[in-house]
Design a protein around this nucleic acid. Structure first.
Lengths: 335, 335
DNA sequence: GTGAAAGCGCTAACAT
DNA sequence: ATGTTAGCGCTTTCAC
């Protein structure tokens, strides 16, 4: 039931509150003897500084908002872990918000974070348009975009090379003789989905392979939608020789669908995906996929934020692109 | 670069700051005409209330700390999601902290949360002893323990029936004819590990089956430790007919170890585990396991917290036990 | 090296 | 229904 303040400490130590503040912050000269008295009083009273008062005064909360679209996707959890690793060492805490791929929720969440006066926001957006982000920047809250771009926002950006990765993944299929390739897209309101689709189309184009409309499936990054779309395609009867899913969750949905339809990977159909699925090592066959490094991306975001906050730097916004590597396993057959 | 305050709004609207506060909080009568003026001024100035000032004044932050031991374990992420679901609807934000099964980190994290004046803490502890938690409670910060108990703390508690679940899981093995059963324990400083071990031993005892020392493995809930311990046991040459791992991560480690040693589940050896592994559906064989409901546990924790905060209730601490169900799949052979 | 005092932006008790 | 004002707990400028 205690709520000891600096004032009580000052009284107990027989000094002014200013002095207590000085030993607390260690930023002004204080004689050894008074310092000792103050520290003793702090210990005896079990005093704990009130960071809210400090925040009000200094206009900084040591809070960083991290906004992700899907906390059931381990990729975003990796990002979280990377961010936390870096910022917690510097005394910051992480406010986590999951928008569930919903732009309306995203705006509400950002508003809430802004009112709570977070020092910065790291955002993996649910769309490619979000005017409210400009509001944050105007209010002097640095925003770091991670994984997903937003149109018309000049700020730091940390992304994977989605285009290049998708291109290489498609190329790998083509070089293995595949021509009838099905792509399961993510939500095309999101930059990563668009870029992966573009990379796919570019590779097909470069090898002069037609892209059939019935092999372009429109998913939304969720497992269930991918599952449904693939099921529907199969039941229509015309099958591709290979499927490319635009993220890990949709690959999981694809595997379940193929399993249910008794289509063997890779004998009956090949499957590749962007981003590793969970427990890859225990799943047969192991999928050929494009590896992203969410943890490092998160760390990088953390570093950028800290740097920005410490140096209050008006440095030019950085754009950091993580190269993705192609990991070849056993889910592609030569045709 | 803006930082509009209530004062500027008041000036613009030609009223006092108290009136602005009143329309903001909507808790005192204000005439329609003044309200309209104020709202207009707010809109025009793009005013946003400063929650730090409000927090200082009202002594509440609408921040809830959630402390977990391992954010790479989807069970704890489920808990987070459940908590977030409930509290975000009520305007609260979630500060996430991962202690990585490290008690020292845990204490530091709690200290930080306390200084940041979170309204409550939901804690899945890394150990069964944590004196600092008492400190929080003394400081009037409600603490809800989730998943893991702490000795000598009188507070709300949300746990699985670890003892019962482990008992039933062991019983299932026994009823399938197994006698040489190996258990891979979690960190026995943690209540869940102890209770699962106790449940295991009780079942063995009830069926008068000896527990051999060489079949008691001491893991720490991590995949790698379980992997190593099982490898070591196998290489010693004496094999059980079944293995019981005390959590999902260790089951994953076990599967990798068995895979590498070319031991087929369940033909060469049976495997069961507490808590579902990731992507269970895609892994052969599907494991027989004890299902926990992290999401519901998290929701329950959220509800308890909200209830506590809203009613400032001095209700007796609740102890909520989630029954665990045995899910029978194909990883156990009859012997 | 230390103290007095202003003030961060808000809420709420007290006036009117 | 509205205004005045004290004060939440701290930091920091200005004196001395």
């Amino acid at each position: 039931m205690s709520n000891v303040t600096i004032k009580e400490v000052a009284e107990k130590a027989g000094v002014s509150i200013a002095t207590v503040s000085r030993v607390l912050n260690n930023n002004y000269p204080v004689s050894d003897i008074t310092r000792k008295k103050v520290l003793e009083a702090i210990k005896e009273l079990n005093f704990q500084p009130n960071n809210i008062a400090r925040s009000l005064r200094k206009n900084t909360t040591y809070l960083i908002g991290v906004v992700i679209p899907d906390s059931s996707n381990p990729f975003f959890i990796d990002i979280i872990r990377g961010v936390d690793k870096i910022i917690s060492e510097e005394g910051y805490s992480l406010i986590l918000a999951d928008t569930e791929e919903d732009m309306e929720k995203e705006v509400n969440v950002l508003k809430k974070l802004s009112e709570k006066r977070v020092d910065a926001v790291i955002l993996a957006s649910s769309g490619s348009k979000n005017e409210y982000v400009k509001e944050l920047i105007k209010r002097n809250i640095p925003v770091i975009l991670i994984d997903r771009k937003i149109e018309g926002i000049e700020t730091d950006l940390i992304v994977s090379d989605n285009y290049g990765g998708a291109y290489n993944l498609t190329k790998f299929l083509i070089e293995n003789g595949h021509r009838d390739i099905c792509i399961v897209n993510g939500n095309l309101e999101v930059s990563t989905a668009v870029e992966r689709f573009e990379g796919f189309k570019a590779a097909m184009h470069d090898y002069s392979i037609p892209v059939y409309k019935e092999f372009i499936l429109y998913g939304d990054f969720s497992e269930v939608k991918a599952y449904e779309e693939i099921k529907r395609m199969i039941q229509k009867g015309k099958l591709p020789t290979a499927i490319f899913t635009a993220n890990n969750r949709m690959a999981e949905g694809a595997m379940v669908a193929l399993q249910e339809e008794r289509l063997q990977i890779p004998d009956d159909i090949s499957l590749v995906t962007f981003e590793e699925i969970r427990n890859q090592r225990l799943i047969r066959p192991k999928l050929t996929y494009i590896k992203q490094d969410g943890y490092s991306m998160g760390q990088k975001a953390g570093e950028l934020v800290i740097n920005k906050l410490k140096n209050n730097s008006k440095i030019m916004p950085k754009e950091i692109i993580f190269v993705c590597t192609l990991v070849i396993n056993e889910s592609v057959r030569k045709v």
